[in-house]
């Protein structure tokens, strides 16, 4: 079987689209992570993310993050229209590098926390939260 020029072109375009599509879905998250880490490698361990397994109301989901020694912790909600949730910067008088807040989740999704350590390395933790009623209106 031989391809003429037009068939080859169509096929290569299809292949390119297929390669780009899965990246598109997470592009917003990748952008947020890159803006925070500057493209550095992200390790595991040294960070704790506490979130409920099941949240009945996505409008207010309690989450806690803790990363002893961290200078900053970013929280991301992978399935929200805008994944960024917030960044905690810890000053010299922070008692422990931990904080709790309440966040909105549009639906069942992974919540990700990434901590920046004083030596410039990054660690992350994530947890899936099942949401019964989404919290982004509409």
């Amino acid at each position: 079987m031989t391809f003429n020029r037009r068939q080859a072109l169509v096929m290569s375009m299809g292949a390119a689209a297929a390669a780009v599509l899965p990246l598109r879905l997470s592009a917003a998250i990748e952008d947020n992570i890159a803006a925070f880490t500057g493209g550095a490698e992200i390790g595991e361990g040294g960070i704790t993310l506490t979130a409920p397994e099941i949240a009945e109301n996505g409008n207010t989901v309690p989450v806690s993050v803790s990363a002893p020694g961290a200078t900053a912790i970013m929280i991301l909600a992978a399935g929200n229209p805008t994944p960024a949730v917030g960044i905690f910067h810890f000053g010299p008088l922070a008692g422990a590098q931990s904080a709790s807040t309440r966040i909105r989740l549009a639906g069942t999704q992974d919540v990700i926390a990434i901590a920046q350590m004083p030596d410039g390395s990054f660690v992350q933790a994530s947890q899936e939260v099942k949401v019964t009623i989404g919290g982004c209106g509409g």
């Binding site: 207010t60 949730v85 917030g86 905690f88 910067h89 000053g91 709790s100 309440r102 966040i103 989740l105």
Partner: peptide
Amino acid sequence: DFNGETVIDVTLEPAISTNPYFEFTATVP
């Protein structure tokens, strides 16, 4: 801040719930 020194500085995005609530710790010298 405590006496001019930072305890915590938080950047909030729209995904923070209505009536933003924060719980954190501070060292008191």
